[in-house]
């Protein structure tokens, strides 16, 4: 099994000493993110997120399927994460590493278990037909802070996604093509975002946001906090690592809330821009005007 190349002792020392004198290698403040770029694809639900050199592509898709026997009134919603060898030689296909397991668990807890997507609205015919919404998250390039970027990409792709419109008449389900009827957005309840803190120092007294790959390699612990802009915690995960004062964790949470509000505003802005770009008038404009009623 190939292993990730470790940074040399000199590099480690350098990063740590810099952090101890309140400096980061790229000149950012401790609670500053790298510039976050979002671009939407031609298709609905395709989003590429760039956070510094970390690049993530998320694609949402939907298909009609049979609901689970134990949940006949709910649609199915899955998030699939893939860390391919493209991002780092340490990742192998079909062999989930610890990073991948933790990433997919965090996305699962943040987006799925917090009920961000209204799965009941995905039900078409109770117990027989429902939508299966699936988000594939591909890590194209890994330069730290995968979790925050992946979570942002997942939420963005789900909010951008439109599923085909459907109607039921006399028990016959019709799925319309985009030409017949404008696709409809998913039933979305709230937008959670992850904010990951990395800790440094013997007592974890230095806390840093959006660590790069090098910074992640030398951290002594991390804590991922998922919130939405209404100030609801969706999930907190400080999975071991060097113990950190409870008070500073509370402080981290309140800073995280500020960052989440920024994320939320950024995503709203980007989605609005994209909607404007797509609104070309003509037949599509008429149809969408109908939908606006």
């Amino acid at each position: 099994m190939p292993r990730e190349a470790e940074p040399s002792l000199n590099e480690k020392q350098f990063v740590i000493q810099a952090l101890q004198s309140n400096l980061r290698l790229d000149g950012r403040k401790f609670d500053q993110y790298r510039p976050l770029e979002v671009s939407f694809g031609e298709q609905y639900g395709v989003v590429e997120v760039k956070l510094g050199k970390t690049r993530i592509l998320a694609k949402a898709s939907a298909e009609v399927t049979v609901p689970y026997v134990d949940r006949p009134l709910d649609g199915i919603f899955t998030i699939a994460t893939e860390l391919s060898p493209m991002a780092s030689p340490a990742f192998e296909v079909n062999r989930p590493t610890e990073t991948e397991v933790l990433l997919s668990r965090l996305l699962e807890k943040t987006v799925r278990r917090s009920g961000a997507l209204d799965t009941e609205s995905l039900c078409l015919v109770a117990g027989q037909k429902c939508w299966h919404v699936r988000v594939d998250v591909h890590i194209l390039s890994h330069d730290g802070d995968l979790i925050d970027a992946a979570c942002f990409a997942t939420v963005a792709s789900l909010r951008h996604f439109r599923k085909p419109d459907t109607s039921i008449e006399n028990g016959v389900l019709t799925v319309y093509t985009p030409a017949e009827r404008e696709p409809v957005p998913l039933g979305w309840l709230h937008s959670p975002f992850c904010v990951t803190w990395s800790f440094y120092g013997d007592e974890g007294e230095i806390a840093v946001l959006d660590a790069t790959w090098l910074e992640e390699a030398v951290r002594v612990g991390s804590c991922t906090i998922s919130l939405n802009r209404h100030g609801e915690i969706c999930q907190i995960a400080k999975l071991g690592g060097t113990p950190v004062e409870a008070l500073s964790l509370l402080q981290c949470t309140s800073i995280a809330l500020v960052r989440v509000k920024e994320f939320s505003a950024l995503l709203d802005k980007k989605l609005a821009e994209d909607a404007k770009r797509r609104d070309r008038g003509g037949l599509l404009a008429e149809l969408s005007a109908e939908n606006d009623r």
């Binding site: 907190i236 995960a237 400080k238 999975l239 071991g240 060097t242 113990p243 409870a246 964790l249």
Partner: peptide, 9 residues
């Protein structure tokens, strides 16, 4: 008061 694990689901 140092917290090693904090998990909220």
């Amino acid at each position: 008061d140092r917290v090693a694990v904090l998990v909220c689901e």
